[in-house]
Nucleic acid binder design. Structure first.
Lengths: 253, 253
DNA sequence: GTTTTGAGTTGACTAGGGTCAAGGCGCTCT
DNA sequence: AGAGCGCCTTGACCCTAGTCAACTCAAAAC
């Protein structure tokens, strides 16, 4: 199953960025690790999970992983790369819903409508673990720990969505966004103070419900205040605590 | 179990508003009906569900059903009355997260943190079905239909939270809010064109991330445009289609 | 090498909605 | 009845962030 490729895509040589790395380490930093590990500890259910997990990709930057309205059949855990989810409203305007880093899961919001309610686009070359959902759901019935994990993932995402809905200033939003990204990178074993923004200013602006110009201005202001250093899409957080203070009202707990 | 009361509350005579009504009809309009019905069709699991459901209340308007930080032990289905959920941020400002009508479920966002992440306050005399969650979760493992129902409820709420996060004008937000309320009342068997707003203008404003004055102004404008009639908290929707058009970008599907 | 294109930055102006303030209406409590 | 209070409405003003526009820069296309 390691070698499976989506139809129509040529396999390409692995690069340092997109290489899956060793399974042990990758799974350790994956949102599903507790579920997967629970299954993978020599129990007979191991085979069950292996049947419903499939490694897919690579998707090149700009390619769709799924589109609004596609029938819901599986959820995806990001193995490498970054993904943006978005909807387009009736006026044709895009609304960015979220960015997903390696180890995070997309597609959970499709369970209810039974169709994907948003687009998912790779921002850079990306690979995934694809979990067949009906089978996953069935497995969850037999394995409480898997069920619990799904409940928690859903509930967690619900909490995250709620935070963005508050009325907050541009500075608060940006500070919270950067702090959140920093912590998510840290949780996956990357540097928390220095990383690459894989999304454009426009995407950030859209996600934070600001104008692209405002994002530019706020970043410039943060730089002149010594909170961050930024050049293009390379970001260094100089004052993590200062940023955290600014964004605290938007951050969990 | 029908007669259980929270400690410290005197039973009070049922009123037309707060009376549970007959079980059959109530359950028919409840979000949990498909799960409950599946369980209650003469199967042995009937007893299991009855053990974990408890009818609680009445809570008077202003009373807390649960508070932020309370340990998570159960979810609640509203049987009668209306409930507001909210958080207070570090500056002490309240943020209204949602309003819940009879037949709707509160507490799902507590699964992940394992504590309630928000307050829930009755806006008017309210009664509930309380479901012990660990037991419910265990039941879900044995009964796929219950599990599926929980997944769907969570995923549905996730979709709803996402909609509020967009950047929309005051008019769009208010129109979508009224249309949504109207449809939820209709789904529960009440009039969709004429109903009582159980929350204050301030609560509506807070929920929609507007100022109370703006809510007032928008409602006045809607009235002068012939979209609604409103007197105090009594609302009549004169032009449902017009409202729907206005709020369409915020409404599901 | 030149042109084109798109992302990003910065400045000037504008507008939607927040804030402040005053006043009306309908409660409840003496 | 009168006082007090909370909720609501309306008006005047202001501020944050959006819009429009000009310009830079780097990478891709020719």
């Amino acid at each position: 199953m390691r070698s499976s490729q989506p139809a129509g895509l040529l396999p390409q040589p692995p690069s340092p960025i997109t290489d899956d790395g060793d399974e042990e380490h990758f799974c350790h930093s994956c949102s599903f690790s507790s579920a997967c590990n629970a299954v993978g500890q020599g129990k007979p259910e191991l085979n069950a999970l292996q049947c419903l997990v499939e490694h897919v990709g690579p998707y090149q930057g700009g390619q769709h992983v799924f589109r609004t309205g596609d029938p819901f059949r599986s959820i995806f855990a990001v193995r490498s790369g970054t993904v943006k989810t978005s909807v387009v409203d009736r006026d044709g305007r895009e609304q960015v819903l979220g960015f997903y880093l390696p180890g995070e899961v997309i597609g959970l919001n499709a369970i209810y409508p039974d169709r994907f309610p948003c687009d998912a686009v790779a921002l850079e070359t990306a690979r995934f673990c694809r979990f067949q959902f009906p089978a996953m759901s069935a497995l969850a019935s037999r394995m409480p720990v898997v069920q619990q994990h799904l409940f928690r993932l859903l509930s967690k995402e619900l909490g995250a969505a709620t935070l963005l809905a508050g009325d907050h200033s541009a500075d608060e939003r940006m500070a919270a966004f950067l702090t959140d990204l920093s912590e998510r990178y840290a949780a996956r074993g990357f540097s928390s103070t220095s990383f690459h923004l894989s999304m454009s200013r426009g995407d950030i602006a859209n996600y934070l419900r600001l104008a692209a110009e405002t994002v530019s201005r706020v970043l410039s202001r943060f730089r002149s205040q010594g909170l961050i250093e930024i050049e293009g899409r390379e970001l260094t957080v100089s004052d993590p605590e200062g940023l955290r203070m600014l964004g605290q009202n938007l951050l969990p707990s």
